[in-house]
Design a protein around this nucleic acid. Structure first.
Length: 348
DNA sequence: AACCCGGGGGC
DNA sequence: GCCCCAGGGTT
């Protein structure tokens, strides 16, 4: 038996009884599909009941004030879904005389309906042979066929849509799509998949190679964190206030200057007003000099560094702060940017 | 192609 | 803290 047949068998024995599975009303299916976008079934369920009761047809929905829709949507997140639904309901009411479309070609034109949702509605309401590709389907296909192409690359998306199309049971599109997703949600889960009771484990490439945890592959956009470092330089000419960095951050256990990290770019004058600064330096700290902001690029972080030369001695020392002679800074392991600044400042 | 949108749950 | 959830729209 092929994958689809096996999964449909599994589905018919193990499926959850979900309200939107007991109808072919395209409007109600649309309602459920929009609610369930990026939303767990358990979270979306009460919203589905409330919407279906208050707006039993698309005509009822189309007449609703946007405030009412958003109020009912409250707590579900991604609120543009609610706004798009109203636009779509109004369009369906006017252009389609209140009859919700069931063909992929018509559905895909509507606000808030993309490839997945168009495939879902058309297959569930009219058995149009369109393969859905959602998070579950990506996972099931990637594991079963052992595909390590990233699911969120353009190439990967195309590949998985092709695989899904090939795997589609064209005699039973609705059943097939439901089965694929339910299987992914209940058994072939992201973590701790129940391979022990999986009906298709013998045909599963990932199971055979013990690679289920590694699939699917997802490109994680190496998101670069922006950080704002305000370094304080405090010296009497011979001695310099330094800081020894701790664990768990860049430059661990190395040395730098007393650091005030802020959430955004902050002018030194404003910096001195921060309660934490006042606590250490009093209210009479004078800015003797300040540098421009230096951009320091690391792999995962962009540091915006500014040095502020203060004409004040701290009232007390923070943990890890200590004085050393300017000469001795040459013996301390420091980030290059810091060391260069100190070297230039003291002209050695 | 990158970014934004959100609350909730699992680990 | 990070990942993921029945994704889609905008730039």
């Amino acid at each position: 038996m092929d994958l689809s047949t096996e999964l449909i068998d599994w589905y018919q024995q193990n499926k959850r009884d979900l309200p939107w599975r007991n109808t072919t009303d395209a409007y109600l299916i649309w309602l459920s599909e929009i609610i369930l976008q990026q939303t767990r079934v358990e979270q979306g369920m009460p919203y589905y009941y409330r919407f279906a009761e208050k707006y039993p047809t698309v005509s009822h929905f189309a007449k609703a004030p946007e405030d009412d829709i958003l109020k009912l949507w409250q707590g579900l997140g991604y609120y543009s879904r609610g706004r798009n639904m109203l636009k779509t309901a109004q369009l369906v009411q006017q252009q389609y005389n209140g009859v919700f479309p069931t063909t992929y070609q018509e559905l895909i034109k509507l606000k808030g309906i993309g490839e997945y949702t168009a495939a879902a509605i058309s297959s569930f309401s009219a058995n149009e042979p369109r393969a859905v590709v959602d998070g579950n389907v990506y996972r099931v296909l990637a594991r079963f066929f052992g595909i390590d192409e990233p699911i969120n690359s353009p190439k990967g998306k195309k590949l998985f849509q092709q695989l899904a199309d090939e795997a589609l049971n064209r005699q039973h599109p609705a059943l097939h799509n439901q089965a694929m997703m339910e299987f992914g949600a209940m058994l072939c889960k992201p973590r701790n998949p129940a391979c022990g009771i999986c009906p298709v484990r013998l045909g599963c490439v990932a199971f055979a190679s013990n690679a289920t945890t590694a699939l699917p592959v997802k490109l994680k956009t190496v998101k670069v964190r922006k950080r704002f470092f305000n370094y304080l330089l405090i010296t009497d000419g011979g001695n310099l206030l330094m800081n020894k960095r701790g664990e768990g951050d860049i430059w661990a256990n190395m040395y730098d200057l007393p650091l005030i990290e802020t959430d955004g770019l902050m002018e030194p004058e404003a910096l001195l007003q921060l309660p934490e600064i006042v606590d250490f330096f009093g209210e009479n700290a004078v800015i003797k000099q300040k540098t421009t902001v230096i951009k320091h690029i690391l792999t995962h972080q962009q540091l915006f560094i500014r040095f502020v030369i203060l004409d004040v001695a701290p009232l007390k020392l923070k943990k890890n702060w200590f004085y050393t002679t300017v000469r001795n800074t040459e013996n301390l392991a420091m980030p290059k940017t810091i060391f260069i600044f100190i070297k230039d400042f003291f002209n050695f």
